[in-house]
């Protein structure tokens, strides 16, 4: 049977999450159809059609899906469900919002946040903020899954496959969009960055955070992250938060600055390829998982690092 994959996109383009979710879908096995829903979303659909391994792309060109509200999007997915035995999406804020709604409407369980595909119906997923890993087997006729994309590599590009139009569903008017405030930044996004530098409570203030972390981030072309403690203290905006309750990331290089390494933070970054920790406290738990640890005053080490790069 076939697999329906909900694309993560902004209409004009596809996010990197989709190619990673596709890897998980291909490991499950079957013809993968990518669903792109949104007004003027053909560019995103065309990008999806060029991902290696996709069988076809379904495009619902409708204003109903402009702000990807869960209610109509779930109804659309459910209308397509009879042709599929697996429906999956990246565990982004959209995927997390809509997929449980789909599962309930189909009367099936959802497997959240898979990190490994062991068999078409057997998956590994983290529980207790990643402090335990569960192996679960689904028993429902349709599997509804969200994918922790940090655990999967992106598929490569390939030859373009056909894009088929799909009809929108009737809007039930349960919810409507009011507004959106995107954090505007010239820096790479946390979810897809190759390098991330994150600051913790030791930065001491918003001013110091910006003064010390941002120049190094600019030099490295890095995304900027923060620990929950730093976010709660107001040193950094909430959407910079890396951790179990923030973003889960796995860059090539993760530099943790003045972060002690609470379990909640480690859960969000421990799959990074190389971890660097800079901390004054030699006993900070972050050093237990860091590949390279530097015991130093961050206010001296960071300006020095900026110069050395």
């Amino acid at each position: 049977m076939a697999i329906l994959l909900l694309a993560d996109h902004d209409h004009a383009g596809l996010s990197g999450q989709t190619a990673k979710t596709l890897t998980a879908a291909l490991q499950i096995g079957g013809d993968v159809h990518i669903l792109v829903a949104g007004p003027n979303a053909r560019p995103a659909a065309e990008a999806a059609a060029r991902l290696a391994g996709v069988a076809k792309v379904l495009l619902t060109d409708s204003g109903t899906f402009e702000h990807v509200l869960a209610e109509p999007l779930a109804d659309l997915i459910v209308s397509l469900a009879p042709g599929y035995d697996t429906i999956l999406a990246a565990a982004t804020s959209t995927g997390k919002n809509v997929m449980p709604r789909v599962a309930a409407l189909l009367d099936v369980a959802q497997v959240s946040d898979i990190i490994e595909v062991l068999a078409p119906d057997i998956f590994k997923r983290p529980i207790y903020a990643g402090n335990a890993i569960q192996t679960v087997q689904t028993t429902d006729a349709i599997r509804v899954i969200t994918v922790r994309t940090a655990a999967f590599a992106a598929t490569a590009g390939g030859a373009a496959v056909p894009i088929e139009p799909v009809a929108a569903v009737a809007e039930r008017g349960l919810a409507s969009f009011v507004d959106e405030t995107a954090s505007i930044s010239d820096r790479p996004e946390l979810a897809s960055a190759r390098v991330i530098i994150s600051g913790g409570r030791a930065l001491g203030s918003l001013e110091k955070f910006n003064e010390v972390i941002l120049p190094v981030a600019d030099k490295l072309g890095a995304a900027v992250g923060a620990s929950r403690a730093a976010v709660d203290a107001g040193y950094a905006p909430n959407d910079w938060q890396v951790g179990q309750t923030g973003k889960i990331v796995a860059p090539q290089l993760y530099i943790a600055v003045g972060i002690s390494g609470a379990i909640q933070h480690l859960a969000g970054m421990k799959d990074s390829k190389v971890i660097v920790a800079i901390n004054k406290d030699v006993d900070a738990p972050i050093f237990q998982i860091a590949d390279y640890g530097l015991v130093a005053d961050l206010f001296e080490a960071l300006p020095e690092l900026e110069k050395a790069l």
Partner: peptide, 14 residues
């Protein structure tokens, strides 16, 4: 007001 990837979104729910 919802915490979404990359910012905040406000929706009005009936």
């Amino acid at each position: 007001t919802r915490e979404i990837d990359g910012g905040l979104q406000t929706v009005s729910v009936r």
